[in-house]
Design a binder for these strands. Structure first.
Lengths: 149, 149
DNA sequence: TTTATATAATTGATATATCAACTATTTTTG
DNA sequence: CAAAAATAGTTGATATATCAATTATATAAA
């Protein structure tokens, strides 16, 4: 059976776009914050907005599983961006708190992230952006439907 | 500075789409080929079509760097999907050959991959597909332009 | 034709991804 | 309530990602 090479499919384009964005974004972050990764930065942004998030909930937001999250947060605690303490309401969970060092990151990061986004989307109309979202959502929903069967 | 949470951006949608596709695709591949990964499968597809590819060229096609490629091919050689031998024309390169076991994969995989693609893209028009490609290419070219400066 | 530069691949260090098995707690339910 | 099920998180095993430094070979330039 003959099929298109992966490099000729839209999935390849999707993947190369997000990888390019991640690399670009990481480069700009590294320039001002030596040991900060995109994903660690996202964790800080989410926790800043919703301080009650559990590791599991954060994992969903950044597309990782529990195990990956445990290790990522270990690293962030070790690097002093976060502190972990007991949650007395539910002792299966942790309370995650952003440290002073973490808060400094939250001052530096947003302008850079904003710039990453706007420069990547330069010249793309609101309409195109919404089409993009709509089509991708269709693909995702096709996949979700198929996952169940 | 207040910015949108990552989960509210189109980059999040792009990432979640490709991750969902990868997971879906991997599940279907695993069902017929226990220890075959998507990326290893892609390497086989590319090598099958272009037997002269170097590790470096394959790396570009599957969005990895040389180091990752070296290790991935080590694994594939160890699992007997590929064999590595000297290239006498240029002794910096290897000649990569698909083994019998690798060729069996090449019989099993294409129908599954084809099905992954078509079921993920069900209901999406040719026009939408080309819009998707166009918009993503715009984003990529914005990023490439910025990378240079 | 030597020296410099470029290229292909490897290795070490560190971070991460994924699955499955596991612990420690709730929460549900019979 | 006690047993069963669900939930949050951890750990081990294995694969992978990335950067920087290194080796070996090939090509270009002085």
């Amino acid at each position: 059976m003959d099929i298109d090479l992966p490099s000729e499919t839209v999935f390849h384009t999707i993947e190369s776009t997000i990888k390019a964005y991640r690399k670009f974004s990481q480069k700009n972050i590294t320039a001002v914050m030596e040991d900060m990764t995109i994903d660690q930065g996202m964790v800080l942004l989410f926790l800043n907005k919703y301080p009650e998030l559990t590791q599991k909930e954060i994992a969903v937001l950044v597309f990782r599983d529990n195990a990956a999250m445990t290790r990522m947060i270990n690293t962030m605690v070790q690097k002093k961006y976060l502190s972990r303490s007991m949650n007395d309401q539910d002792r299966r969970r942790y309370k995650l708190e952003i440290t002073k060092k973490g808060k400094e990151v939250l001052n530096l990061l947003p302008p850079i992230i904003q710039n990453n986004r706007t420069s990547s989307l330069a010249g793309i109309t609101k309409n195109e952006l919404s089409q993009l979202g709509t089509i991708l959502d269709k693909i995702k929903s096709n996949i979700t439907k198929n996952q169940l069967s």
